[in-house]
Amino acid sequence: MNLFNFSAQSNISLNRNPAHNFAINHSMMIYGSDALYSFIPKNACSTMRLSVAIANGCIDGIEDGHWIHGNNQTFVPSTAEALKAKFSFAILRCPFRRLASVYLDKFVSKEPEAWQFRNAINRNLNLDNLTFKDFVMSLDKPWKVNMDIHWKPQLSFLLFKDYSEYFSLEDFATCVTTLRERINFSVIDARSLTNHGTNEFELLYEDNFADTPAFDIAVMKREGRCPSHFSLYTEEVFSYVSQIYSEDLAFYSHVFGKENLLDSKI
């Protein structure tokens, strides 16, 4: 039987335990294989939610893909379903890459998450002028780190103390193959639906863009070019991210080693 990660941290009723509720509300059952998937935003989340919806018979394919955005809670497991799930998995990501992806997607494009962040920390903040370094250094309080699911630490999403499989986004091909072999689950690529990634851009590695305003990067993206995740980091920024996401980094390194962490490239 599976063991819950956060249940013993508090003696209050489990259905009022905030850490547990957060984690279970970011989990989905795959009914045909009695499997549980814990989804973490910015970690192939849209691709996997689309794939779960198709596997559960709610939509036919990517042409109905926008259905997933209103149905994150549709496949949330009951306590019994979660505890008795025969297979469980989560996809983790290098924390440095995940935070860079958040900035290039949500802040450069001025998505709702960027405006909510602005309103929460400083309504005079000019999003066009916000650099990646500015964003990182503004995460100076735990509530700021935890305020949005797209940059909230990944360990907060893990419902169980252990999973049948952990996958690394940096080796997503292994995830696709393993899920097909172990639970007959097909992964359907949703990147053309969301355009949240950088796969369609010419990625820039030579210059450093840590202090480049978001507006300038938006112009570059309109021209088909985009800073690589690597190019957004300086030693100072890297060191700060290492501190605020230290537990995510330690867990990722424990499970996968350090080969695919961005720090091995700086």
Results as ranks from 00 to 15, higher is better:
M1I: 07
N2F: 09
L3R: 05
N5C: 09
S7I: 01
Q9W: 04
I12A: 02
S13Y: 07
L14K: 11
N15C: 09
N15I: 13
R16K: 12
P18Y: 09
H20E: 06
N21Y: 01
F22Q: 00
F22G: 00
I24N: 03
I24A: 04
S27I: 03
I30Q: 08
G32K: 15
P41I: 10
S46L: 06
S51K: 01
V52E: 12
A53T: 09
A55E: 08
N56R: 09
G57T: 10
C58F: 13
C58Q: 13
C58L: 12
G61W: 01
I62M: 11
G65T: 07
H66D: 15
W67F: 15
I68M: 10
G70P: 02
P77N: 08
P77L: 07
L83P: 05
K86F: 02
F87T: 07
A90V: 09
R93N: 02
L99R: 00
V102N: 01
Y103L: 03
E111L: 13
E113H: 14
A114V: 06
F117D: 11
R118K: 15
A120Y: 10
I121L: 13
R123I: 09
L125D: 13
N129A: 15
T131G: 02
F132G: 02
K133N: 10
S138F: 06
S138Y: 06
D140G: 06
D140P: 01
W143N: 05
K144S: 12
M147D: 10
M147E: 13
D148T: 06
H150C: 07
H150I: 07
W151A: 01
K152C: 12
P153N: 09
P153S: 12
Q154D: 11
S156W: 06
S156N: 15
L158W: 03
F160N: 01
D162V: 10
Y163S: 04
E165A: 10
Y166P: 13
A173E: 14
A173P: 00
C175R: 02
L179V: 01
R180D: 11
R182H: 10
R182Y: 03
I183Q: 03
S186P: 02
S186C: 05
I188S: 04
D189M: 07
R191E: 15
S192L: 12
S192A: 14
T194Q: 04
G197Q: 13
T198Y: 07
T198C: 08
N199R: 12
E200L: 05
E202V: 12
E202H: 09
E202C: 04
L203P: 00
Y205T: 08
E206Q: 07
D207F: 03
A210C: 08
T212K: 09
K221P: 00
R222I: 03
E223P: 02
R225H: 14
C226K: 04
C226V: 05
P227D: 00
F230C: 04
S231T: 09
E236P: 05
V241L: 14
S242Q: 08
I244G: 11
E247M: 12
E247D: 15
G257Y: 06
G257H: 11
L261M: 13
S264I: 04
S264T: 14
K265V: 12
K265G: 01
I266P: 06
